[in-house]
Design a protein around this nucleic acid. Structure first.
Lengths: 242, 242
DNA sequence: TGATTTATATATCGCTCGCTACAGAAAAAC
DNA sequence: GTTTTTCTGTAGCGAGCGATATATAAATCA
């Protein structure tokens, strides 16, 4: 599937399938599923309609493939941050900081495709909308699971409402995506992310110093995502200062 | 404009204009501007296309009228909360709590029309999208102004970033609207609102921890004027109040 | 060299979009 | 009554939608 093993028989394709898919992603990302017409796609992909249908099926199948590629290339940072960091707090903090960067990278559409590409849909596209909604639900579920693990381990207080906290994080991320599309710059999104983390529950007991403002590392090397709290940290009794 | 003074000359209108406008609002609110067709509108409004155009102009003008009516009947609660409560904190807290109720009222579309009705748009509807975006910007500006006033009065710390805090609130509200449309119930939205307020900066001087999660519990019925105010703390010690 | 296979370019298809011309219907004005 | 004014129902406009039929172009296989 990934490589051509034998020489194909007929006339070879005159365009690069991956490049065309990338262009389709741009269009769907910017305008959304329904607002992007086949005519838009053929123009930006640089191919004719029959080539599009031969290579990708129909509009819906092309979109599905775009969403899959998006998840692989751009959308995975949240799950990755939550899975890789040692605590839920650090994972979510890093996810929010990285979202501020990802959602404002120059040269690509603002915000998140999964969040914004199928919001105002006709009944004809109800399935597409439901598909993206399910992905959003799944993302929040991932966060909730990570939070629950920290409750079990004692990192978070036993009475922490994992579902509510995860949905709060999801709402903030969706809000950040919309703010990015509405024109907020990267620094503003970083401020929102930083503020949002102030709502995070205190560590249960003898926490180890969680410096949430520490380097998230491997994102995109952009220093704008300092993540440091521009606002005075709220007074806490149990939280050891870094 | 509000009343008919003289008897009109020709054949009288066979439908109630306000009722028709209400139905149009429902359609736009549910599906968004572009995804709602004239055919949808004439069906739900119960009138023919020529009657629609005679009474409201074109689709764009009808939508503008819908948005104006929406602002009057449903959308004003944020500005009202922020304007009426004695502090920005109480105002925003009440606004978030009321959003949880407003965005999940049974028998009407979920979420906020201004937030969600023109998100995936073709270039043909760029003006509509820009118009709603400007309203969102204005709402955040209102919140920012209220926060700034509390900084001046000393209610909030002098180093509070009013713009960032206002944009955070805006992002949370937009996230709540999307969550509502994604199926979150009222209790979940109330939890998100409660969590979001934990990020609010401490009062400049006056004492003790704010128990920001002070139960918005009641939800329905009258969103009490004092609802949510943990304790009246208007006096500030650090700065002279006007 | 054909013959076969696959891709592309042109020119649509049926359908829905926002919108309107036109003629008939229902009221006030005369 | 007749005239005038306004609204409503039918029917259809040009344009764009997603998707294709057809014919030609470019490759491999024999």
């Amino acid at each position: 599937m990934a490589s051509k093993e034998t020489k194909q028989r007929g006339r070879p394709r005159s365009f690069d399938r991956e490049t065309a898919l990338e262009q389709a992603m741009r269009s769907f990302w910017e305008q959304g599923y329904e607002a992007t017409s086949i005519s838009d796609l053929t123009r930006t992909m640089g191919i004719g309609a029959p080539s599009l249908y031969a290579a990708f099926g129909d509009k819906r199948a092309l979109f599905d493939e775009v969403v899959a590629a998006y998840g692989r290339r751009h959308g995975g940072f949240i799950d990755r941050a939550v899975a890789e960091e040692p605590t839920a707090r650090q994972g979510v903090g890093r996810a929010l900081r990285e979202a501020a960067v990802e959602y404002t990278l120059p040269g690509r559409p603002r915000g998140c495709l999964v969040i914004s590409a199928a919001l105002n849909t006709t009944p004809a596209s109800a399935e597409v909308a439901a598909s993206l909604r399910e992905m959003r639900r799944s993302n929040i579920g991932q966060i909730e699971s990570r939070i629950r693990a920290d409750i079990v381990s004692g990192e978070l207080p036993a009475d922490t409402d994992a579902s509510a906290l995860a949905h709060y994080v999801g709402a903030v991320i969706q809000g950040m995506s919309q703010q990015a599309r509405d024109g907020a710059d990267r620094a503003m999104l970083a401020d929102i992310a930083s503020l949002a983390m102030r709502a995070w529950p205190e560590t249960a007991e003898a926490g180890e110093g969680e410096e949430t403002a520490e380097e998230a590392g491997e994102t995109h090397g952009d220093p704008a995502a300092d993540g440091g709290a521009p606002h005075p940290r709220r007074a806490t009794l149990a939280h050891p200062a870094p």
